[in-house]
């Protein structure tokens, strides 16, 4: 009942706003593309990334730092520390060609972590984001065994001073959320992509893979890109260019 009332109020409010905003045009555009706080994520959207490794600079880890800051991660690199995002340096064993790229949860369409999770704590949201519900996670770490990308971390110690919009805690598994708190607020960009642009590399392009007119879809249609371990057939939401 209260939900219904809430929605009606919201609709009334947004209609008024839309009316006001028709002249500038900008706000109307946003309302058509964004999702209100009361609306569930929809499968009309599939969030993904295109990472251009030719633009990614070896030794630069601005994306990782931005991720840590956005999500309140301490940024340690001991084997027991959580790393949602890491920079990987590659050297082709035949040609010697060096490549640098960011690695994180690949947000698979068929995520092995979701398949193996006994309680359903690992799940894939309608808009393609793979998440852990920490209320259900019992900390068995089977998802970490199953992930082909080593994208997940286990919280080994009690935590303090988490960020209010990124709850995390001891004894549960976590990984990149594609900055879900930002997406739900309607800011359709991740902290890492933002930081990469700011550093002038523009190696990370975030967007909606299901919208044929989005920049990411247009780029994936025109340039050669690949998914990591594409042979596994998991259809990750992250695409890499120049690999």
């Amino acid at each position: 009942m209260s939900e219904e009332l809430d929605r009606r109020q919201f609709l009334k409010g947004s209609a008024m706003l839309a009316g006001l905003a028709i002249a500038p045009g900008m706000l109307l555009y946003d309302l058509a593309h964004g999702r209100s706080l009361n609306e569930p994520a929809s499968s009309a959207v599939r969030w993904g990334m295109l990472i251009d490794t030719s633009q990614c600079e070896s030794g630069c880890d601005d994306c990782v730092k931005a991720c840590n800051k956005e999500n309140g991660l301490p940024g340690g690199t001991r084997p027991t520390d959580e790393q949602w995002m890491r920079k990987v340096e590659l050297k082709d064993m035949r040609t010697g060609k060096a490549t640098s790229l960011p690695m994180m949860c690949q947000h698979c369409e068929e995520p092995p972590c979701v398949d193996v999770c006994p309680t359903g704590a690992s799940f894939r949201r309608a808009d393609g984001i793979v998440l852990v519900d920490r209320h259900l996670c019992i900390g068995c770490r089977y998802c970490m065994m199953a992930c082909p990308y080593k994208a997940r971390s286990f919280v080994h110690e009690p935590l303090h001073d988490q960020k209010p919009d990124v709850p995390r805690g001891k004894g549960t598994v976590e990984s990149c959320t594609l900055c879900v708190q930002r997406i739900d607020r309607g800011e359709n960009n991740t902290a890492c992509a933002e930081a990469c642009s700011k550093a002038g590399h523009k190696a990370i392009l975030f967007g909606n893979l299901n919208d044929p007119d989005s920049e990411i879809s247009r780029r994936i249609r025109t340039v050669a890109s690949t998914q990591i371990r594409a042979d596994l057939g998991l259809n990750p939401g992250l695409h890499y260019e120049g690999l």
């Binding site: 979701v114 259900l136 019992i138």
Partner: peptide
Amino acid sequence: DLGRPERVIVAATHFNLKSVFA
């Protein structure tokens, strides 16, 4: 050995039927 052994009741009440653990 679970990260949250006190939640073993969750494991007994929430099942992901695709999981071999379940």
